[in-house]
Simulated assay, not measured.
Amino acid sequence: MVFNTKKTQIERLDPDNIPNHVAIIMDGNGRWAKRRHLPRIAGHKKGMDTVKTITIAASKLGVKVLTLYAFSTENWKRPTDEVNYLMSLPTTFFSNFVPDLIKNNVSVKVMGYVDQLPPATQKAVRDAVEQTKDCTGMVLNFALNYGSRAEITTAVKEIAQEVATGNLAATEINDQTIDQHLMTNFLGDLADPDVLIRSSGEERISNFLLWQIAYSELIFTDTYWPDFTAELFANLIIEYQGRHRRFGGLDPDKKE
Rank of each mutant, 00 (worst) to 15 (best):
P118R: 14
L187F: 03
D192W: 02
A164K: 00
S206F: 12
I197N: 10
T171L: 03
L209C: 12
I178V: 15
F208M: 01
E162S: 04
E162R: 00
T121P: 07
D179L: 09
T121C: 11
N207Q: 01
E172I: 08
S206H: 09
D134R: 00
I205A: 02
K133L: 12
V163L: 02
G188F: 06
G147I: 07
I197E: 10
F208P: 11
L168V: 10
P193C: 05
T177M: 04
N167L: 01
H181M: 10
S200A: 15
V129Q: 14
M183S: 04
V125F: 08
T184M: 14
T165V: 04
P118Y: 08
E172V: 07
N185R: 15
S148C: 06
D194Q: 06
W211S: 10
V195H: 11
E162V: 03
L182S: 09
L168D: 11
I152R: 11
A155G: 11
N185P: 04
K157C: 06
D115P: 07
R149E: 00
V129K: 12
R198T: 14
I152H: 03
D179I: 11
H181D: 08
K133M: 12
Q131F: 07
Q180C: 05
R198V: 14
E158Q: 14
G137L: 09
K157S: 07
D189E: 14
Q161T: 15
I197L: 14
N207P: 12
I152F: 03
T136G: 02
G201C: 10
T153N: 14
T177Q: 01
D192I: 05
E130R: 13
G137W: 11
L210W: 00
I152T: 13
T171Y: 02
T177E: 00
L144N: 03
R204V: 12
Q161M: 07
T136S: 14
T136W: 04
I205P: 09
A124S: 15
G147E: 05
E203D: 10
L196C: 11
D192N: 15
L182M: 13
E151D: 15
T177Y: 02
K133Q: 15
K123Y: 10
R204P: 12
V195N: 10
I178R: 09
E151S: 13
F208C: 00
V195L: 09
L168F: 06
D189K: 15
E162T: 02
E158Y: 06
T132D: 13
G166N: 13
V125R: 01
I152A: 12
S148T: 07
C135I: 08
M138Q: 02
K133S: 15
E151F: 00
I152V: 15
K157W: 02
M183L: 06
I159V: 14
L140N: 03
L187Y: 04
T184R: 11
E203L: 09
Q180F: 10
E172T: 09
E130G: 05
A169G: 14
P119C: 04
P193S: 07
T153P: 05
